[in-house]
Every structure is written in C-alpha cells, then in structure tokens.
Amino acid sequence: MLDEREALANEGSGRGMPFGMHGANTAELRDIAGRFTFRGGMVLQSASTLRGQIERIDWEGPDRDRFVDEWRARTDRALVDLGDLVERIGIHDLPRQADEQDDASAAAGGTGGAGVPDRGDVESGKSDGERRAHDTRVDDPDRHETVPDEIPNDEVAIDPYDINQQALGDCWALASIAAVAGTDPELLAENVQYDEASNDYLVTLYEDGEPIEVRVDGSFVYNDEAGAYEYAVGDDGMPNYASVYEKAIADHYGESYGDIWGGKPEEALALITGREIETQGFDPFLPWQQGATSDSIAGSIDSGQSVVLTTRNDLPDDSPIVGRHAYTVVDVRDDNSVVLYNPWGANPESGLTSEPGLEPGEVVVPADQLDTYFRSSSATK
C-alpha cells in the first residue's frame, strides 16, 4: 500500500510523475545546471566590473587605500568565491547527479532525461568571435599543410613536455593528453595506428568506456603568413603525437577545431583513456563532500593516475597562474607542493616559476595556495 505521505507529496508535486517514483527529472536537472553556470558567470563578471570601477574612482589618500584593500580582501574575494561556487554546481555537481540518475534509471529498466549542458568550461571566457575564428574544418585542404612522413608515436616520442598549445583554446584536451603521456604513454602509442598508404592515422578514443575509431589524415592547420603550424605542435614547431590526438578530438566533436574551444578536463581524460574520472572541487559546496587537497592529488599520482587541475575563472592578469585554464599535474613533493605543467609550454615569470631546475612550462604551487588558484582536480580511476 502506498504510504500516505508519499501519495500526498506526489499529488502536490505537479510533475505528473507516477506514484512511488523516486529520483529526478534529469532533463530539468541539466536545464537548471545550465542556469547555474550562466548565473555563476554573471556573478564573476559583476565582480570584475565592480573591481574595475573601484580602481578608477577619482579618489586619493589613506581612506581610499583602506577602502580598496578591504574590498579586495573581503568583498571581492567573497563575490569571486560565490561565482565559482554557483558555476561549479552547474558545471560539475548537477550534471553528475543527472548522469547518476540516468544510470540508475537505465539499470532499473527506465529512461533518463534528455539534453546536456554546454561543454564549455576552461577557456570558455573567450568570445564567440574568437571561437568562430578557429572554425577550420579538419578536412579543409586550403588551411592545412601535409606532413608526408609518419609522425613518431612510440613511447619515447610521447613526451608530456613536448606540447605547445598555441592559438586554439583547447587546454582542457592538451593538458589531459600531457597527463596521460606522463602516466601511461603505452596507451597513447597503442591507440594511434599509422596507415602509410593513405598517410592517415586511426585514433582510438572512448565513449562511455567503449572504444571508437576516428580516422584523420596527416595534414595540420598551417598559417601561411606566419610560416608556421597554428595549433598544437612540439617544441620544434612541428606536428607531433598531441597534434594527431587534437585533430581526432576535433573531428569527433564536430569536424571543426572551433568545436573544441573550451571544455572539461574530466571529459577529455575519459575520451582519451576510457576510464572513469573523479572530479573534486577545492571548495566543496556541501559539508560532507571530500574536497581536493595536495594529499588527495599525491594519492592519485602515487597510484599512477593522470591528474589535471582547472583554475579559477577570475584570477587577475598578473597572476602567476592563468585563469580559466588547465594544468597537468607532474608530481607532488615531500613538502606537499604540487609541480604542474602548463600546456602553453611556458608560464608568466613569477616566484612560482623561478626555482632552478624547472622544465619550461613547469610551475610549483605550495599546498596552502592550491585553493587560491584552482577550483577542481580531475583524475583517472
């Protein structure tokens, strides 16, 4: 017999759901997730606008200095944290709840909701015009230059430091490629097969853990005016294994490089490895959630997992860490500081990059500064 309280709750819900149903309308969850993401971005934009207006006030003296210092330390920080929190709920938490509900419904023989929110995450702050400027089709012969010989793709050639992102806003994918190159180069080598007769590459990617094959040719976007390849290349300026993967990912998502401008590292890691991915925020929004720490990152690295960190959206221009960006985790030191690699192959000069012996693109972040610069950590399982 149906519990009376449950019957009343269902009757008053107005959702038209059958009595006894538990769970959520996943289409609505995803719709709300998009709204959270949008509203979080609005809060961050408001913080940026107010910050600029305050800095431009025609006001001098100690009172002005005290006011600005207090604004930066309290109000501005609170607004940025709020925007990050709301945006993270929309980008990570609500979609994950919807996915889990769909999985539970499928296991029970039911159906889940439809529709997914925008993939845009890191580097999504770029304008639509900038994104459209890179809507070059992966098969456009007028924009490509052919590499006639096989691009080395053995375990020696797959070097996590041999990636230069260049013009395309796909750090989410390239940082993930570098992370896997550092922990499982054999997988990347095995999943790219070269066809000498056609000069094509057959790349194995994964959807829901199942392998899929994407075929791309050996030509890559070339800028005639600059006399150089435009997107991911190695340190020598020539296409390499990362270029092949980048082209395959672009083809998979929509046949245009603009389709991979902005995205989520957890999505790229799953696409490249076929494994489950765990994403943790550095500031979990629910008290019982486990947040990312240097210890949790160290545990992932010690277990041979590939780890990528996503930065906060509103870091200042002079920050030593780039905002709306993704970094590959290289190592966690004994003092719990985290060594990261920037897929740009370089970093803004700062105290975090001035340590002798660092590779180009490496940066060292102390454990107590991780939540200042980063909002989430994604790791393969």
Rank of each mutant, 00 (worst) to 15 (best):
V43S: 00
L44V: 06
Q45N: 11
S48Q: 10
S48A: 15
T49L: 11
L50C: 08
L50I: 14
R51Y: 13
R51W: 09
I54D: 04
E55K: 11
R56Y: 07
I57C: 13
W59P: 13
E60T: 12
E60I: 08
P62K: 02
P62Y: 01
D63E: 11
D65A: 13
D65Y: 04
D65S: 10
F67V: 08
F67S: 07
V68K: 13
D69T: 12
D69R: 09
D69S: 14
D69H: 10
R74S: 15
R74K: 12
D76A: 14
R77T: 12
A78R: 09
L79Y: 06
D81P: 03
L82C: 11
L82G: 09
L82N: 11
G83N: 00
G83P: 00
D84W: 01
D84L: 03
D84N: 12
D84C: 08
V86A: 11
V86Y: 07
R88N: 15
I89M: 10
H92F: 08
H92G: 10
D93Q: 06
Q97T: 14
A98V: 00
A98K: 00
D102T: 03
A104K: 05
S105W: 06
A106D: 15
G109M: 04
G109C: 04
G109I: 02
T111P: 06
G115R: 05
E123T: 02
K126E: 14
K126A: 14
K126V: 15
K126Q: 13
S127W: 07
D128Y: 07
G129Q: 08
E130P: 03
R132N: 08
R132S: 10
A133D: 11
A133T: 03
D135M: 10
D135C: 06
T136I: 14
V138K: 02
D139H: 03
R143T: 14
E145P: 04
E145A: 15
V147S: 03
P148T: 08
P148D: 14
E150Y: 01
E150I: 01
I151R: 02
I151D: 04
P152G: 02
P152S: 02
D154I: 00
E155W: 00
V156T: 14
V156K: 09
V156L: 15
I158P: 01
D159S: 04
D159T: 01
P160F: 03
P160T: 02
Y161T: 09
Y161H: 10
Y161M: 06
D162Q: 01
I163F: 05
I163P: 00
N164R: 14
Q165S: 05
Q166R: 13
Q166F: 08
Q166A: 12
A167Y: 06
D170H: 07
C171W: 01
C171D: 09
